[in-house]
Computed example of a mutant assay.
Amino acid sequence: MIRIKKTLLMLSSAFAVATGTAQSQAQVFKAEEPLAHTYSIVARDPKTGEMAVGVQSHWFSVGTAVPWVEAGVGVVATQSFVNKSYGPLGLQLLKEGKTAEEALAILLAKDEAREVRQVSILDSKGNVATHTGKQCIRYAGHITGKNFSVQANMMLTDKVWPAMAKAFERSEGQPLAERVLIAMQAAEQEGGDIRGKQSAALVVVKGQRSEQPWDDKIIDLRVDDHEKPLDELARLLKVHRAYEHMNNGDLAIEKGQMQKAMEEYGKAEAMFPENLEMKYWHAIGLASSGQVDAAAKILREVYRKDDNWRELTARLPEVGLLNVSKKDLEKLLKAK
């Protein structure tokens, strides 16, 4: 941490000399402002209203600094020499009725260090405003399009953000999260961050705020430290989709729609055939619906790989998560 602070102070002093503003730099650069030189995308799906931020950087835990989101309001990506306040303040300005352009102008007007900032604001209607400061380390720039903006700084080449924009536009028709990931993968193919890669994040929120705001964030994935953060982010997104199928299967069982439940469970297991959790709850769902023999067949495979699941099966009836006869329970427990 001391070394990082010294580096920031050196960078601060160098910038002060270059711009002739040495006396104000103590207020402009702060040690708590992370150097999130990076590429990101803010985007909206016009069909669902969903909004997203995707980001990758050679900086630890970039997901804690760059993306800011609120369902029914908008999303913000703040980067380069990050001013985190741009996130919550930008969203607040949108809630007050300001346009994305007006909100960005207000934030920049109050910031002495605006020329080392890079920020993009997208509102719930798809309006977007983006700023790349003149002192952002090259290569730096942005492209705004219909319902999206891509922005990058300290890139290996100036082809990064154009590749992101093109990839996003060409992926139309796919789910928003996948489109955002495709755009970031395109950035990496053009060299990405000149320093390399370390962390990434992908956040998606609903287009409209619901009466259950704790469920308004649809996807919230972070890779804080990884040799290949985008690969890991892609894996996590796939896991997320698989568990969506599991949840859909559970709901189908509750409604007595067994065929749909089996289809959903099957889709999840096809994505991760070695995942015991998915196999296990699929079996419990079958047993609860009266298909004990089919459940025992799956449990046999699960127990063989980890016998702790057998003990879990014995504990489920006492909390009402497995309602079968004593005879059927014995069959499920003795599956070998």
Rank of each mutant, 00 (worst) to 15 (best):
V319T: 12
K6G: 06
R310V: 04
T7V: 10
I194E: 11
M51F: 06
K228F: 06
A65S: 14
T64G: 04
A252T: 03
N147A: 01
K110Q: 15
L107S: 05
M154C: 06
L94A: 09
T130E: 00
Q174K: 15
A314N: 04
V69E: 10
A295L: 10
K326E: 14
K326D: 10
T313A: 07
Y39Q: 06
V66P: 03
Q118T: 02
H58R: 14
R179Q: 10
V292N: 06
L237R: 13
L299G: 04
V116P: 00
L333Q: 12
V319E: 12
R310A: 09
R235I: 04
Q212W: 05
A270D: 10
R170K: 15
W59T: 11
S199C: 08
G256R: 11
N127R: 09
S80I: 05
A26N: 14
E50P: 05
D231F: 07
Y86F: 15
I106E: 15
L202K: 13
G49S: 08
E330P: 02
L221M: 04
N275L: 12
A36D: 08
I194G: 00
G173K: 03
G173H: 09
M184V: 01
G141D: 03
S325Q: 09
D193P: 10
V204W: 04
S288T: 11
P273K: 14
E190M: 13
K166E: 14
P229R: 06
A31M: 03
A109W: 02
Q257T: 02
Q212D: 07
K305C: 03
Y265D: 02
E188Q: 13
K146N: 13
Q135L: 06
T21H: 13
W214K: 12
N308A: 12
E301D: 15
R138S: 01
G87I: 08
G126S: 09
K134I: 00
I284G: 05
R310N: 14
A26S: 13
K159D: 12
L332Q: 07
V76Q: 11
A167N: 08
L107M: 10
G141C: 07
K327S: 02
H245S: 13
A140W: 01
N248H: 05
Q25Y: 07
A43V: 09
K206Q: 15
K297W: 05
E269S: 03
T21V: 10
H226L: 02
R209P: 03
A252C: 09
F60A: 12
R235P: 00
A26K: 12
K267N: 07
Q185L: 14
Q208A: 15
P175E: 14
A113L: 10
V66R: 00
K331F: 03
H58E: 11
A186D: 04
L156W: 09
V302S: 06
K267C: 02
F148G: 02
H226Q: 14
L276I: 02
S85H: 05
V82S: 02
V319N: 09
W161I: 00
G54C: 09
T64M: 07
A22R: 14
K334E: 06
K327I: 05
G192S: 07
A65F: 15
A201E: 01
G141K: 01
N275A: 08
I143T: 12
G133Y: 00
L316A: 00
E330G: 10
N248P: 02
R195P: 04
L236R: 15
K228P: 06
V119Y: 01
L230P: 04
S24D: 14
V239C: 08
L321Y: 13
